[in-house]
């Protein structure tokens, strides 16, 4: 909020420093240290990637569930075919995509407006509102299941994707506001002032100055909203009820598990189908995500 904040965009700063660091590091590179570090990295990679690998491995193995082998004993794509046709995961993916994108769009828009208010204006109750935003994130979902179920029923939106989007927007909003607030605050006030000096209205300034500068933050919050909607389980389970055609991937997988609980090849194929798109997306946007967290959660 203060105008003395350094004019540094977080992304730029994280991008530059490693170079300087690596120069320093090379001066004290002892073989033992390197070896120890190598072992640590190897262990870390095993821990993070083994579940992913095991999921892929089983999903590609016709023998999955009969023999456990560290590579597909009998490679096949049958599990995938089965899951996408009879398993109905094509529909589940479509539903999840619609719900997630809807959630992202609406929650980002609302969060951006609100974050500008709390980051750019000093007004009565500002602290209370920030407190509120933080506190509502703490509410356990289980506490909301029953009343939200009744609420959504009263809106006649049970068993619909729209009903889910409405709920997920509410779930994603507080974190979105919290994170974007940092981004908006990091935009130098001088730029706004310059726009006013050029005779721009507040709305014009918002679109042409503020919005482009907080775009990386929007990407980061969008990812979070997307993940919230993609992964959410308990509301989807209670609110979609019997509407199988509207199932999202998370409860589609549970329902699939209910029938094919011993067909691990197929369960892992379904899991892969759900996970891989998000995974690729995450790896592609990881720098943006990191910078989003830096500005949002970490205030310099």
């Amino acid at each position: 909020m203060s105008t003395t904040r350094p004019l540094v965009r977080p992304e730029v700063s994280t991008g530059r420093r490693p170079l300087r660091r690596s120069g320093r590091r090379s001066s004290r590179r002892s073989p033992l240290r390197q070896l120890g570090k190598g072992v640590l990295v190897a262990l870390l990679l095993v821990f993070t990637l083994f579940p992913v690998y095991w999921m892929l491995n089983s999903s590609l193995d016709a023998q999955a569930g009969h023999t456990s082998s560290f590579w597909p004993a009998e490679p096949t794509l049958d599990h995938y075919v089965f899951v996408l046709t009879e398993g109905g995961f094509g529909t589940f993916l479509r539903n999840s995509l619609l719900v997630a994108l809807g959630t992202v769009l609406i929650s980002s828009a609302l969060a951006l407006l609100a974050s500008v208010a709390v980051a750019r204006f000093r007004f009565r109750m500002r602290t209370q509102i920030l407190m509120l935003v933080l506190i509502v994130q703490m509410v356990p979902l289980e506490a909301l299941v029953i009343p939200l179920f009744v609420q959504v029923r009263d809106l006649q939106l049970l068993e619909t994707l729209t009903g889910l989007i409405v709920v997920y927007v509410a779930l994603a909003l507080p974190f979105g506001i919290w994170m974007l607030r940092g981004f908006v605050a990091a935009v130098p006030v001088e730029l706004e002032e310059a726009a006013y000096l050029d005779g721009a209205s507040w709305g014009r300034m918002f679109w042409s100055v503020l919005l482009p500068l907080v775009a990386p933050g929007l990407v980061a919050t969008s990812i979070f909203s997307f993940i919230t909607a993609w992964n959410e389980f308990i509301f989807a389970m209670t609110m979609l009820g019997g509407a199988t055609e509207n199932y999202t991937v998370a409860i589609g997988l549970r329902s699939f598990f209910g029938v094919h609980s011993n067909d691990w090849g197929a369960i892992m194929a379904a899991s892969t189908i759900i996970t891989v798109p998000v995974m690729i997306f995450f790896i592609l946007v990881q720098r943006r995500l990191a910078s989003g967290l830096t500005a949002g959660a970490v205030k310099e």
């Binding site: 579940p51 389980f233 998370a250 997988l253 899991s271 996970t275």
Partner: peptide, 19 residues
């Protein structure tokens, strides 16, 4: 390494649990 970490992060809770 951070790509691998991203992969772990991206795994939805439901799938992760089944795995």
């Amino acid at each position: 390494t951070s790509s691998a970490i991203m992969a772990a992060w991206a795994m939805p809770a439901v799938t992760g649990t089944y795995v």
